[in-house]
Design a protein around this nucleic acid. Structure first.
Lengths: 105, 105
DNA sequence: GGTACAGTTAACCAAATGGCTAATCTCGAC
DNA sequence: GTCGAGATTAGCCATTTGGTTAACTGTACC
């Protein structure tokens, strides 16, 4: 994975998350993985580039089709960042009750 | 958590992740949580607003200081999205392994 | 009162993002 | 060789993002 900025940014767009969700099922061509998103092909093409540069997917060019699949470690870096934080804070979060109580003070 | 777009976008900036990492230790004022990031106070102020609107932090105004705290469920939505995909992906992987094992018999 | 401090808002600017249409490239089928 | 299909690149545009400085709000302190 390139870096956390790119990784999180890659997953911040619904079309890109949709592509990832489909590719989690199986490898697909561009047309399969991106139909029904309601945007033009060039728009799709750039979403794919963002995902590729973020290290989320790999592309195998097969004739005139491009076969896409998730990278094995696609989700690791953002997942671990979130997971480490979750492990760290435990008791340190704000509860709604605390918040409301302090607002009333 | 507001939505996945906002959540992932919130974590896509190093300063915002840095703020979250500090707040995972303990509650802090704005100045404590954001010193040494090398940007101006207005820039910080807007990063905080992004985090707040994404549902990542809460703010309690205490005199002239704003005390910041992580929200209880701050990381849940992006974490679960990634986790569900990982589960799916690893299941596929296991299936492939099983398939190969069966082929070798 | 008056001043300093913690923080935000306003106004502005440059760069990045996300969309489009039109043009292009590369195969596969005929 | 020609045509069409799968996909990208080029060029354009509007909006958003991330930064700045200057001005402002509200609070603490003398």
């Amino acid at each position: 994975m390139a870096n956390l900025d790119q990784a999180f940014a890659a997953y911040a767009h619904p079309i890109r998350r949709g592509i990832i969700e489909r590719l989690a099922e199986r490898e697909m061509t561009v047309a399969e993985a991106t139909s029904d998103f309601g945007v033009s092909k060039p728009a799709i093409s750039r979403h794919l580039r963002v995902l590729e540069e973020a290290g989320a997917i790999v592309r195998v060019i097969d004739g005139r089709q491009h076969r896409l699949r998730l990278r094995e470690d696609a989700l690791d870096d953002p997942y671990h960042w979130l997971d480490d934080l979750r492990a760290m804070w435990e008791h340190k979060f704000a509860t709604v009750e605390q918040y409301l109580a302090e607002q009333r003070r």
